[in-house]
Design a binder for these strands. Structure first.
Lengths: 198, 198
DNA sequence: ACCGTACTGGACCGCCGGTCCAGTTGTCCA
DNA sequence: TGGACAACTGGACCGGCGGTCCAGTACGGT
């Protein structure tokens, strides 16, 4: 994927403008009420440019989500404990759940959009694999690993899906919207704790 | 809501035809790939009729979901134990989780559609309350009550959302599609069990 | 200064959910 | 039995969306 050609300066400028514009619009309205044309207008570019850079609506949203999830990703991979490596698995688990709830809370609408978009795949080879988005996959891998360390007897892959999936569901996103983040983080801890402290 | 006027015979016939047609189409493709026009054609009626009877796409999907969830609802409210009243709360909890997984499994695509539609409310009074659909609310109420009986110290409302929400998430629905229902039911039992058997 | 190429933007396309209304049909009452 | 009225019907129609296309533009290496 690494191009030999450098990216042109105006292309960079426009890509950033589009991402910023999307962020601003997203802060005000629900994502399904924002059209690609509005985004283009807000960014001061043509609609064609938006699609040229991001491929599709989903591609744009995904790019934005990647950007937003980068910090957490780095903190988990090489940051200081307890989020990063070095702390005991249980501490890392709790820290990670708290962090995920926080990130999800700051990106509810984006996640709702991506979750829905996951079903709509490219019509290229007839039946494209409708995988979850990369950000989710990363979270899931990390969570599975932590759980497996603590309870190797469980179906940790599935438990990780259960824990993360619940955060993506509409009722939870609604609560997050109402600032119930701390309450959710606490209860998620209770649930995970019940699983882990046997 | 109880009308004094009886429903006309042809209206009943058409309503059933539309629901059946929707079911058949839903069995073959993902719901977002089915247009209202296709449904109308498959049912042998005009598009106007579909909207007249169900109000909107969401209304139609909801009507279908209600129909599908009726059996479980009755079994829980007045059926034999352990699903119905009479069994100890723990048994009822396990039985209910199993039953919900089964119903969700038979209606994944429908639920995905409704979950997404929950965000898009009627543009009537500016900002309509984007509540979850009635079927979900019913399940949530029942599950909350059972949990509260077993662990009154927990935030059972929220735990119920976590358990049910996870089933609505895309990754889980994907697994359900691949026939992993039993695996999911089992793990859900493990999670609930860890919470309840302290 | 020049040239090739990647980038740009807005007209355009097909489709979708939803509306409208003129015509039809079931139902009730006399 | 028949007539009148409301409820139902269906397909033409609408605004708007995501996505495509391509002629024109402007960047950046040489």
């Amino acid at each position: 994927m690494s191009e030999g050609r450098r990216e042109r300066a105006d292309a960079v400028r426009n890509r950033r403008a589009i991402l910023r514009a999307t962020e601003e619009l997203l802060a005000g309205r629900r994502p399904e009420q924002i059209s690609m044309e509005q985004i283009a207008a807000a960014a001061g570019v043509g609609k064609g440019t938006v699609f040229h850079r991001f491929g599709s609506r989903t591609g744009l949203m995904l790019a934005l989500m990647r950007e937003r999830a980068l910090d957490l990703d780095e903190a988990v991979r090489s940051g200081p404990p307890p989020l990063g490596p070095g702390a005991p698995a249980r501490e890392r688990l709790y820290a990670f759940l708290d962090a995920v709830v926080e990130v999800v809370g700051r990106n509810k609408s984006l996640l709702a959009e991506l979750d829905h978009a996951a079903g709509t795949a490219a019509p290229s080879t007839g039946e494209a694999p409708p995988t979850a988005h990369p950000v989710y996959l990363g979270w899931h891998a990390h969570l599975s690993a932590l759980l497996a360390e603590l309870r190797p007897d469980l179906d940790t892959e599935l438990v990780a899906h259960l824990l993360l999936g619940s955060l993506q569901s509409n009722p939870l996103l609604r609560l997050l919207e109402q600032g119930e983040g701390r309450r959710i983080a606490g209860t998620l801890r209770d649930v995970a704790g019940a699983l882990v402290d046997r």
